[in-house]
Amino acid sequence: MALFERPPRSICILRLSAIGDVCNTIAAVQAIQTQWPETKITWITGKLEANLLESVAGIDVVIFDKKAGWKGYRQLWKQLDGQRFDALLHMQYAFRASIATLGIKAKYKLGFDGERAQDFQGLFTNVKVPSPKKMHVLDGLMAFTETLGIPTKSPSWQLQYHEDDQKWAQQSLSDKRNLVIIPAASKGYKNWTAEGYVDVINHATKLDWNVIIAGSPARIELELGEEIEARLTTPITNLIGKSSLLQMLALLDHADLVIAPDTGPCHMANAMNTPVIGLYAHHNPMRTGPYNYQNYVVSVYEEAIMAETGKSSRELEWRTRVKDKQAMQRIQPQQVIDMFDLVCHEEKL
């Protein structure tokens, strides 16, 4: 049964991290905004993630300092002092997020049901959101909106960025077709090889594509970018560490195609309706892949999980992760090149 027959006055969203998950959560929040435009929405998130939320109109963002310990909780609760929400959507089951709910006043505190909740999240909520049949993270988030009383709809995004962000992106874009590669994730085990990227880049440049590599200023990303450039004989544009999140959003929006491992920009590209080839080994892409482009994922998850456990994913708990830190090396360059050619054909690029 729906919690609300008429639009509630106010809703609080609790989703602290990470960029990809926050990007997926935006679709659920914007579904609420579309159905209930007068409902006030407050979103509690992390400092980095708040930069991405600048792309979402009509929400109040409250930053929670995850690194400040108990001081961060006290600051958060002080900011919310005097506010009472009709509903809190506790959309992150991490224990540190659950602690934050203790100082958030709301009639209903929605959390995942027993199938999806972890880290004792159920102790901090009074409404358990039924898990959908689909395993994808985003489907689990959209289930919150259905529990509130919003009709089921396909996830969609309306993200905006500034004119200056667009101008920044256009400086590196070409009149040719533009391929943006995000080579690295923040966790090294999710990263593919420099040699593999070089083979794909050489293939794209032979087809007269303009190639750009981009990413955050994290050392692991900078080093992989440098290694890729050192192995190339044809120059490319290296923007790794040179963009803000909204500049990255603009770049992904204007790209013709994106290639990325399981990392935030993979989901940002999906949100901008830019075709993206996701590279996956450790997580089942049916659960964490770019939502609208799961058919374009190059995945070795099934073979890696079989090698590790002797079982297929269907025989295992639905969120089982591959632990082998070398699993991404199972992806062969020709697999990505073949997918590149297929996407170009299907998307008429």
Rank of each mutant, 00 (worst) to 15 (best):
residue 271 A to K: 06
residue 11 I to P: 07
residue 288 T to S: 13
residue 225 G to W: 14
residue 225 G to Y: 09
residue 315 E to A: 15
residue 229 E to C: 15
residue 345 H to S: 13
residue 344 C to V: 14
residue 81 D to W: 05
residue 174 S to R: 09
residue 8 P to K: 06
residue 327 A to M: 04
residue 110 L to H: 03
residue 173 L to V: 12
residue 152 T to S: 08
residue 61 V to K: 12
residue 110 L to T: 00
residue 266 C to L: 13
residue 150 I to W: 11
residue 317 E to F: 14
residue 40 K to T: 05
residue 254 H to E: 12
residue 216 S to F: 06
residue 11 I to Q: 05
residue 222 L to F: 00
residue 271 A to R: 07
residue 2 A to C: 04
residue 125 T to N: 14
residue 215 G to I: 05
residue 282 H to C: 00
residue 299 S to T: 09
residue 230 A to Q: 04
residue 255 A to W: 10
residue 33 Q to P: 06
residue 91 M to P: 01
residue 283 H to N: 09
residue 122 G to I: 05
residue 269 A to K: 05
residue 121 Q to I: 01
residue 186 S to T: 13
residue 172 S to V: 02
residue 207 L to S: 07
residue 62 V to G: 13
residue 80 L to D: 06
residue 17 S to M: 12
residue 266 C to I: 07
residue 77 W to I: 03
residue 193 T to Q: 14
residue 325 K to Q: 08
residue 213 I to F: 02
residue 255 A to Y: 01
residue 296 Y to P: 02
residue 46 G to T: 08
residue 228 I to A: 02
residue 236 I to C: 00
residue 237 T to G: 09
residue 84 R to Q: 10
residue 327 A to C: 10
residue 86 D to Q: 11
residue 229 E to M: 12
residue 109 K to P: 12
residue 64 F to S: 02
residue 280 Y to I: 04
residue 112 F to A: 12
residue 263 T to K: 11
residue 269 A to N: 10
residue 292 N to V: 04
residue 215 G to P: 02
residue 90 H to S: 13
residue 119 D to F: 04
residue 74 R to V: 08
residue 87 A to H: 07
residue 166 Q to M: 06
residue 213 I to W: 09
residue 142 M to F: 01
residue 217 P to N: 15
residue 327 A to N: 03
residue 253 D to H: 15
residue 25 T to Y: 00
residue 240 I to S: 06
residue 249 L to K: 03
residue 330 R to T: 02
residue 176 K to S: 14
residue 149 G to C: 04
residue 210 N to T: 00
residue 99 I to G: 09
residue 298 V to F: 10
residue 2 A to T: 14
residue 3 L to I: 01
residue 32 I to L: 14
residue 129 V to M: 12
residue 12 C to E: 04
residue 307 A to M: 03
residue 28 A to D: 08
residue 81 D to R: 14
residue 164 D to M: 07
residue 337 I to L: 08
residue 337 I to K: 09
residue 342 L to G: 06
residue 312 S to I: 05
residue 324 D to C: 10
residue 71 K to S: 04
residue 116 R to Q: 01
residue 118 Q to L: 04
residue 255 A to N: 09
residue 343 V to W: 08
residue 87 A to F: 03
residue 15 R to E: 06
residue 296 Y to H: 11
residue 115 E to N: 11
residue 175 D to P: 07
residue 134 K to C: 00
residue 314 R to L: 12
residue 236 I to R: 08
residue 68 A to Y: 15
residue 243 S to N: 14
residue 118 Q to E: 04
residue 320 T to C: 11
residue 115 E to K: 15
residue 70 W to N: 04
residue 244 S to Q: 01
residue 52 L to N: 03
residue 189 Y to L: 13
residue 209 W to A: 11
residue 180 V to T: 15
residue 40 K to L: 10
residue 112 F to Y: 15
residue 296 Y to G: 09
residue 339 M to G: 10
residue 13 I to M: 14
residue 308 E to N: 06
residue 203 H to E: 13
residue 123 L to P: 06
residue 228 I to N: 03
residue 82 G to R: 08
residue 145 T to P: 00
residue 203 H to Y: 13
residue 37 P to I: 01
residue 282 H to E: 13
residue 53 L to S: 03
residue 241 G to H: 06
residue 334 Q to C: 07
residue 105 K to G: 11
residue 231 R to H: 10
residue 93 Y to E: 08
residue 169 A to G: 11
residue 235 P to Y: 00
residue 178 N to V: 08
residue 261 P to Q: 14
residue 196 G to T: 05
residue 344 C to S: 12
residue 244 S to E: 05
residue 326 Q to A: 00
